[in-house]
Design a protein around this nucleic acid. Structure first.
Lengths: 211, 211
DNA sequence: GTCTATACTTCGATAGAC
DNA sequence: GTCTATCGAAGTATAGAC
């Protein structure tokens, strides 16, 4: 019989929603406790402070994200396909964890103010894994000469931004201030895959031979 | 003789820095007042509330951004060049107003919670102007078939993200967790221009004739 | 327009019984 | 592990003299 989800997990889930909605500073511990149906003292019993709760949450998600990306990087597919897969994984992660895009956006804006060394290390595995794919592709002549970190942002930023902006885009559409974008995020994923494939392709004029 | 900057302007400048650093919820009115070298009562005298101060600030910047982009859209250059110009303008805006990327990131994450109708209207002029350029390019056969709004995010998100993430990237580099990216934002602008030019190009196999 | 002082509220965190 | 009650700090906003 499926046991009822235990307190710490419920708290983490509630915190994810609250932090996504309001950011670290805007998040209210009372609200998190209420959403999790525990009282505040219980929350402090499990996670010492608002900050530690926040960091625990981030480490969890970025650990999973890093693992998935590393699996792709370690695969045997051609670099072009790995990038396609990476784009799909980013999009999936962002949909599976709706709080991810908001939190990423905010944490970037905040210059990582709430992150400790360990959390930063976990977080950094994601761009590292992606950069490895790009570097491999450049070396193999599958991509033009790119800065792997620049390439990472070229891909991740639109996915995160597009997903996170869905509510505000819907509002602007309702106000007739913006044409409604294709609401299917699948379409956007394909748009990104197609765009990046072209953007990263080596110049067609001459075939580069691996030396 | 250049008169000393008047209070409301100093307050707006200070507010820009504070909101960029901490977000709306994290921003402290006391700090804004101190940064502006006015006292808190003065701030409330000019701008009624923290929220009105915030909105005033955003309307100012997005008004300028919208104007610049509309000027490009109205120009006579070919669509490809207009997009190059738009990319350059976004990058310039983001550098001229260092608070812009943080605030955009946060406002997207917050689903526009602090924005009223008027501010949203001002803000929406930017994607509208850009989408017009893309639509023109598609109609002229200069671009492949794109969702103009998707195209907008494909461009703006990396620029904003890359600029806003500079501090956290520097930290990660210092921790040896990430290779230092080309710090020159000019390089990134050229990367984006080159990438987008390729990403938006129509299929080379067949020339489309305008009907 | 500008200041000091302060009212009022909310929040993060803890004490202590069970 | 779970609760109620509450403290002390910090925050937004205002009153009222100049």
């Amino acid at each position: 019989m499926p046991r009822r989800r235990v307190s710490p997990d419920r708290i983490l889930a509630a915190a994810a929603a609250e932090f996504a909605d309001r950011g670290f500073a805007g998040a209210r511990v009372d609200r998190i406790a209420r959403r999790a149906r525990v009282n505040k003292a219980m929350l402090y019993y499990h996670f010492k402070s608002k900050q530690r709760l926040y960091r625990t949450l981030l480490r969890r998600v970025f650990t999973r994200a890093g693992e998935r990306l590393l699996a792709i990087a370690a695969g045997a597919a051609p670099p072009r396909d790995k990038v396609d897969e990476a784009i799909a994984v980013f999009a999936t992660l962002v949909r599976e964890h709706p709080f991810l895009p908001s939190v990423m956006l905010r944490e970037v804006a905040e210059e990582g103010a709430h992150l400790d060394r360990e959390t930063l290390t976990t977080l950094a595995r994601v761009p590292r894994a992606f950069a490895a794919i790009v570097a491999e592709g450049i070396a193999a002549g599958a991509f033009r000469d790119l800065d792997p970190i620049a390439a990472y942002f070229t891909i991740v930023a639109p996915i995160v931004f597009f997903q996170a902006s869905a509510p505000i885009r819907r509002e602007l559409s309702a106000m007739r201030l913006m044409p409604p974008a294709s609401d299917s995020s699948d379409l956007f994923v394909r748009h990104m895959q197609e765009s990046i494939r072209r953007a990263f392709a080596p110049d067609a004029t001459q075939k580069r031979s691996p030396r």
